[in-house]
């Protein structure tokens, strides 16, 4: 309950929005009221639910793919000198590139269907997970590693039972950033080439002057993004409950 009370600023914004629209301060084509947008949400429930399902499917397919590869590459970079010296400059150079710039290229390679979208989302999710896994595992206390080695841990056990858990707070932060990127690029890709998904619905409603549906789509995207981030936050707190936040 206390958690919900902390969210009151959102309620304030929604109320101001509603009052501004009802008072006729702005053209309803620019800003329909919150209640009208919610009515559009209910009226187009099936359409929007289908769009949401498409968007979530793409976002999670890309996220899982990109995060898995990122985890493996990050682990390899932390563990093998050769992988580190080869991949570190590449990752460092490509990370700041806006991933959307790769989309035309991916469409040429993979077509206009799902593959290019999922690939784009995967690329965006890959970097934060790879970089954080690498940094987290490089920073593992040498004495923890030594303690494990003197107690008979082999190379695989050292990796999976010591280095990965020790780096988990970092890896999880990377995953959370990656999730944000995945949502961002899902919507962007859908706005560019798709005939379903929330990104498509938002741009389509805008082009057809259905402002209420456009706002319904935006509210839905925002709500989903917020809910997934909260879920990850909750999961993170349970996964790394051992962290001594007072000393770190």
């Amino acid at each position: 309950m206390k958690g919900f009370l902390k969210l009151y600023p959102i309620a304030v914004v929604l109320i101001v929005w509603e009052m501004a629209a009802r008072a006729g301060l702005v053209d309803p084509l620019f800003l329909p009221s919150f209640s009208a947008s919610m009515q559009a949400l209910v009226a187009n429930y099936q359409l929007l639910a289908t769009d949401a399902a498409y968007s979530l499917g793409r976002a999670f397919a890309g996220l899982i793919l990109g995060a898995s590869v990122g985890l493996i590459i990050g682990m390899a970079m932390a563990r093998y000198r050769a992988a580190e010296s080869f991949l570190d400059p590449l990752v460092a150079a490509l990370f700041p590139t806006p991933k959307l710039a790769l989309f035309p290229l991916l469409m040429v390679w993979l077509g206009l269907g799902e593959a290019s979208k999922v690939a784009l989302i995967a690329v965006s999710a890959f970097f934060p997970v790879a970089i954080n896994t690498y940094a987290g595992m490089r920073g593992v206390d040498r004495f923890l590693i030594w303690n494990a080695r003197t107690k008979g841990a082999n190379a695989l056990q050292l990796l999976m039972r010591v280095m990965v858990p020790a780096a988990m707070p970092f890896i999880f932060t990377g995953l959370r950033v990656a999730t944000g990127y995945a949502f961002l690029l899902t919507v962007a890709a859908e706005m560019l080439t798709a005939n379903n998904g929330l990104g498509f619905r938002i741009i389509y409603s805008q082009r057809t002057f259905e402002a209420e549906t456009m706002y319904a789509g935006i509210v839905l995207v925002a709500t989903l993004g917020f809910a997934v981030d909260r879920l990850l936050g909750w999961l993170g707190r349970h996964l790394i409950a051992w962290q001594d936040t007072e000393t770190i």
């Binding site: 030594w146 494990a148 003197t150 020790a166 988990m168 962290q243 001594d244």
Partner: peptide, 19 residues
């Protein structure tokens, strides 16, 4: 190389914080 027959206890209790 390390061998479990030679045990070592490190400074500042290096036990595993997640266990």
């Amino acid at each position: 190389g390390p061998d479990p027959k030679i045990g070592i206890i490190f400074q500042e209790f290096r036990i595993f914080p997640w266990r």
